[in-house]
């Protein structure tokens, strides 16, 4: 329960800072909540599935954003940018830098690859979903 509230606040407040309109703020908060909820759930059930879970979490955020974009008639980024905040691989990024300062480059590489993989998967999750949605919308227009 605590994590749900934190994830909600954790994407609502960034939404305020990038100036999301007042009537969309709550919905931007739910975006991050959904993504983080799925991620936590998957990691709890399947330990060691962090990478896949990040991808699926982002995919949920992206689907939600595209749907809400149609419902609320605004760009999808208004929901997807705050939504991916709770999924950012911050801990790994810190350990990468700390290992570099300790000159433990093997450890740094391990964490660094994790960061790059997770960031790429976040990007890929958004990419796949919005590609599918754009394709569907184009098909609709052509008919």
């Amino acid at each position: 329960m605590k994590h749900i509230i934190i994830a909600f606040i954790g994407s609502l407040c960034p939404a305020v800072l990038i100036n999301v309109d007042r009537r969309n703020l709550i919905w931007a908060g739910f975006s991050g909540l959904l993504g983080r909820l799925l991620y936590d759930h998957l990691v709890a059930i399947y330990p060691g599935s962090a990478l896949v879970s990040v991808f699926l979490g982002t995919a949920v955020v992206a689907v939600y954003s595209e749907v809400m974009a149609r419902v609320r008639k605004t760009p999808a980024t208004i929901f997807s940018i705050p939504g991916i905040f709770p999924l950012v691989p911050g801990v790994d990024a810190y350990h990468t830098i700390q290992s570099i300062t300790e000159q433990d480059y093997v450890e740094a590489a391990v964490f660094g690859i994790n960061v790059v993989a997770k960031a790429s998967l976040i990007a890929l999750g958004v990419l796949v979903v919005s590609a599918v949605f754009r394709k569907i919308m184009l098909n609709k227009k052509q008919r």
């Binding site: 990038i18 980024t77 997807s80 950012v88 911050g90 990024a93 990007a123 958004v126 990419l127």
Partner: peptide
């Protein structure tokens, strides 16, 4: 991490990918 997270370039990342797409 918690204090720096706000300044990470999440937007450049997602917009970059959307542009490529």
């Amino acid at each position: 991490i918690a204090s720096v997270i706000l300044y990470l370039p999440g937007v450049s990342l997602t917009n970059g990918v959307r542009d490529l797409l």
